[in-house]
Amino acid sequence: MLNVAQLSLGRGGRLIQQDLSFSLQAGEVLQLLGPNGVGKSTVLHAVAGLLEADAGELHWQAQPIEADLEAWHRSLFFLPHKLPAHPVLTPVEVLRDSLALKGLKPSLSQIDEALLAVDLLDQAEQAAGSLSAGQQRRIWLARLVLSLRMLQSELLWLLDEPLTSLDKQAQSLVFDLLKQHVARGGLVLLTSHQTVELDGLRTLTLEVAE
């Protein structure tokens, strides 16, 4: 489904990855490993199309992603390391805005259910800026819940450090969401310095480019 071939990436005028190739089939989870600064995040950005690669090709469902960018953007969800939660917006609003970008209008009960699933319902109407780092990340776990329930086309999850600032309970929730996503034939490309407890997890260790 996702095919990355001979990707070369630079950052700040310096080559950090060269000839990186991997592929991901339906129902697979790939964890990128490697020391800080090796370019894990950068690879994720390049796969999402947020960063132009110096060289290389990206194919989604056997088509170059440039062939149909709209379909590509419908198929992926990218969770950056920095959190897209505006401090003055409430979790409900953050989720509604995020889904509006995908052209969806979830009902309040659908959002509430997702917030309940991540144990954030009590903070549903609080400004995100007043929530703790872990609670802010939970907003995005709720976004993943909504992806599972409402966005059948969102098959590729790109998760940059999804386990950061989460307690044990929330981490196991992440693993649970990953399992559900895999069960529906979804693909996950993630970076994490922590152990991802998942059967059939593939890992790819990035090396520093010469």
């Binding site: 199309g49 953007h73 990218f78 950056p80 959190l83 897209p84 505006h86 401090p87 995908k102």
Partner: peptide, 10 residues
């Protein structure tokens, strides 16, 4: 807040 990325991935 990373919202810009979400915009470009819409």
């Amino acid at each position: 807040t990373g919202w810009l990325k979400q915009i470009f991935l819409s």
